[in-house]
Structure formats: C-alpha cells, structure tokens
Design a protein around this nucleic acid. Sequence first.
DNA 1: AAAAAAG
Length: 653
Amino acid sequence: MRTSWADSVAKSASETVVSNNNSVPRPTRSTYVPPHLRSSAAADAPTPAGTPTERPSFNGNTGGSRWGGSGGTRPESGRQGQGNGYAAAGRDVGANDRNNRSGGWDSREREVNSFVNDDKVYDMKQGFSEQENTGINFDAYDDIPVEISGENVPSPVNTFAEIDLGETMNQNIRRCKYVKPTPVQRYAIPIALAGRDLMACAQTGSGKTAAFCFPIISGIMRDQYVQRQRGGRTVYPLGLILSPTRELSCQIHDEAKKFSYQTGVKVVVAYGGAPINQQLRELERGVDILVATPGRLVDLLERARVSLQAIRYLALDEADRMLDMGFEPQIKKIVEQMDMPNRSVRQTMLFSATFPREIQRLASDFLSNYIFLAVGRVGSSTDLIVQRVEFVPESDKRSHLMDLLHAQRENGEHGKLQALTLVFMETKKGADSLEHWLCINGFPSTTIHGDRSQQERELALRSFKSGKIPILVATDVAARGLDIPHVTHVVNFDLPNDIDDYVHRIGRTGRAGKTGLATAFFNESNMTLARPLAELMQEANQEVPAWLTHYASQAPYGSNKNRRSGGHFGGCDFRREESFGKNLDYYGEEIVVLHSEFLPITVECMLLVSQVHGIRSSLSTGLFFTCFSGMYIYIYSIGFPRLFYVFTFSIRF
DNA sequence: AAAAAAG
C-alpha cells in the first residue's frame, strides 16, 4: 500500500483523534423508534405541507400512518439488543408488522448521536473561532436571484416553521444550527413536499443536501404503511440518493443521518473501494434511504441484495456529472432498466450547481411534469469568491505555487486559523508528484485521486479537513460537492477543459456564505477556456486581466460545451428555449431547427447516406432526437442555416 | 485526454 510521508504524519495524529471521535460506541443496530412515536404516533406524525402527492398511494393502502396504529407497536421492549425479534434481519413479517425496516425498541441512547462527532471535531480544531462554527452566514443569501418554471409551482416559504416537518425533525434542524432556510431550501422543500419532480440548479454549500433530504425523510415518516415483501436477503429501500464520488456519498450519508436522528428512518451508505460485507450487513439491518455510488449499487442489484421496487424517492446529486458520458449508461441502467418504479410513480429530484442543456435533455427522461429551479450561485459568481487568473507557463507552475504558499504563510492572513489550500491538478500522476515535491519543500500536503485506495483517500480527506495537513492536492474527484469548511484558497494549478468544472472546483471555497480565494494558472494550453473564463469572471464582477480579455476576443466561439447560459445561474430551463419541442417532439415534422449551441460543427460529418430509418440516440453533445429518413433538417452550427437531407443518422462518440 | 465508478 502506497502511503505518502504526509499521510504517515497524519495517521499518527488522526488516529488519536479518530478514537476520540468514536468514543460513543456504535450500537449493533441503529434504527430506532422514539418513544413518542411508539403508541399514539398518529397525533405526532408530521403534517405534510402543501397538497399531497398526486401519485397513486403506494399500495392503495390507506391504513393510517406508518408510525400510527397499534399493529406492531409495543410499549416496551421485552428483549435487549440482538435478541430483539423485531430487529432480526430474517424474521417473519407478520400481518401486523407495519415496519419491517425499523429496528427495535431500544432506549433512545442506542442510536448514535450524529451530532456528537461535530462537537468533538470542533473542539479539536482549537484554531477555529466560535463564531465560525455557528452555521451559515445568512446575510450572504439576501437578494439571490431565483428562476423558477413549471406548472403550478408551490409557493416558497420563509421559515422552517412554515414547513413544519414534525417535532423530531424540527429539533434536528435546530441541532444543525439552521436558523432559516437557504434560498434553495425555501423553494425546493415545498416543491418536494408537494410530491413534485424537481430539477434544481444550486451551488453545493447552499444547503442542497438538506433541500432533498428533509422532504424524503419526512415523506417516509408520513407515508402510509406499506406491507413489504422480503425475498431472502433482499432489502427494499424507499429512497435512493446517488452521487458521483464515494466521498460525496459519505458526506450525504453523514448529513442525512443528522437530519433523520431519532425519526426511525434508517439511512445506509454503499460505495466502492470499501469491503462489501460490512455494507451488506448494514443493509440487512434495514434501510429506508440508500445513499450510493453507481458502481456499487449496480453490484448490489446484480447480487439481488437490493431491490429498487419500493423506491418512491430518487435524488441525483451532482446530476450533470451523473449524466455525462462516463456515468450516463450506468445511471440509465439503474433508473430505467432495473426494477425501479417508473417516473410517474416515484418522485425524482435532480440537483447540481450547473445544468448544461444537453444534460437537461437527458435528465428530462427521468422526470415527469417537473419544476425547474435555479438559484443564483451563492459563492461562485458572487463577491464571496475572489477569482484571480495568472499567466503561468507550464514550467513555472511549481515555483509560482511555492511563492503563493510562502506569501500565504507569511501574511498569516487568517490569523491563527488554519488556512486550508486545495490544489487541483489534471492528472493523478501529476497530483502525486506535486504532493511529494511540496512535502520535501517544507509544505506538508496530501493527495486525493482515483488511484489511491479508499482508505488512503479517506485519510487524506480527514487530515485535510481537520487542518492537520493544510494542503490537499486533488484531481477532479474532489471537484464536486465536497463540503470542506475553512478552505480559504483553491488553486487551479491545471485548469479544467470545461468551464463548468471550473465552477465546481472554485465552489470548494466560499462555502456557507464565507469568503474565499480562487487562483488559476493559465497558459497556452488553456486557450479554449479563455472566452468562457473571461465571461464568467466578468459576470461575477471579477477583475479580468487585459491579456485574458485579449485571448478571449481572439478565441473562436467555442462549441456549446464551453459556453454558459443563464446569466448568473448554473443554467436555465431548456424547455423555455424556443426550439424546445421542435427538437424533442417533432415526429411527423419534416424540418428540424437546431441551434448552433446544440451541435458542434462536426455534426455535418455525422449525416451519412443510408436507407435505414432514423434512429433515436444521442450525439456526443448529449443531444437527443429522433430522426426519420427523408427528413429535412436545418443546422445552424456553421453560422448560417444549411439544409440537409437525412438518410440516416450516424452517431459518433 | 483525464477522471470517476465494481473487483
């Protein structure tokens, strides 16, 4: 096993920390039904805000709240621990057993207090001031622009009190120190509680995770009891949350556990790189909400250890990544080719900071009559992140970085606070080599990328988060969604090729309403990024260096891929494009109008002669459309409309 | 072209 110098330093340090954190022993079983919900729970069941879902109730069963009624509830536990027949994985499901996922009737203390860890971590980081830990800077969220579209949009709320999720969850919200909902929560939660599908564009760190977790948890609590079949060791989660990286799944799981503390809703995480047996055991103990990465989930589905038959809530985090070329087949398989209820039965929510419209097109297959929500990007295109671009030739990058780090160290800009610096590199090898170089030059650092073992990845992240190692060199595995407080500086040592990736990367700082700095090293190899980067910075009222403006003006209008739309949003509802409909539903029409942004110029080469009927598939841009032989189409990609006669459509990837 | 995700 490869272990870097920095990690071994961190290991000795973090091991003590870890043992401290885990001083609360993990119970053998963590699901739990709180006392106040055991007998007369109907009265305590949270009242759903907004109108109930239009979807058919799951089993047509109207037999009261899952938590209500007397069937299956017992005032006290006759047995302890594993001996509790109600919690045993393979027990019979009696007619009165209304909840075969919920655990036993242990005392309240049996559930791990998800909030304990937080405090310990905070104690450990003595450098962090009190004030910095008190949640989110809400002033930073005033006057955030919001775009919303769709039919019958539920009204937003202004306070958590308006979306009363029940006493247990309200208490958890208070424990999380959430004072009032963030903009994305204000809009998304009522939409989700009303049972509507949702496509939401909002920066992570703006409260996205809570925005989809609260409704799912409260939905599961409120849903009528469903008699569930058990096939051998197969488990049937009700909610599924997918994310593109293992670390992000862990993070969502941690948060979801806080939100569901003492609600009886069991959240389990499954991801690759970790021993599957432990995850299987965890699943066997019961699962209501499964948080997973796609690969491991497919594995579990193929082993028939998990069935998606009972899924009523599906959430994709970082949905644009999940639907890009690398992931899309796996996601399609999970959502459309396994046993998941179709989109009119389940409720589907997609979240991301950016939503290119090709991705929206793909995503719309998963959604039914959805609402599109875009909340201005907190922290990336606002004043919260200061963006700098410097022209640095490839060969000077290391010494330039060294200069920055030295300056940072000397200025002590952040007082005694540990300033965390996140450095993004293009390749895994590059990350390793830079980390080594930094370490031998007096800057303790560590690295996270896909070639490291999961253990190493998690250790690296922990060491960085805790401030033990203040520099993390990362590939794009860390670009999305990770919430690492106190990252004050993001360095794009290598710029990404896609402007959206840049947006995600710099979003690792300026979290939760705090300010941050993002520095990018730009050189000849980044020319395709010149224009979109200059535009983005302009939009964000950042100082654009004259040389960048110059390069941007010389750059050709890139293909759609690098062009942003929607102003200060990560995207706008593609259904509002004038060409919508013509592109999607024109069976029987002969003329198709395609905007340049949808197609790269190479589309010309994709139209080939053949006698076969048109086929439905996607271009490399992710564009979907159906084409029939004999159809005429206009293509606007070359600056002026040109008419093509289609014999067939050839797909290139 | 690279990275991520299963082992």
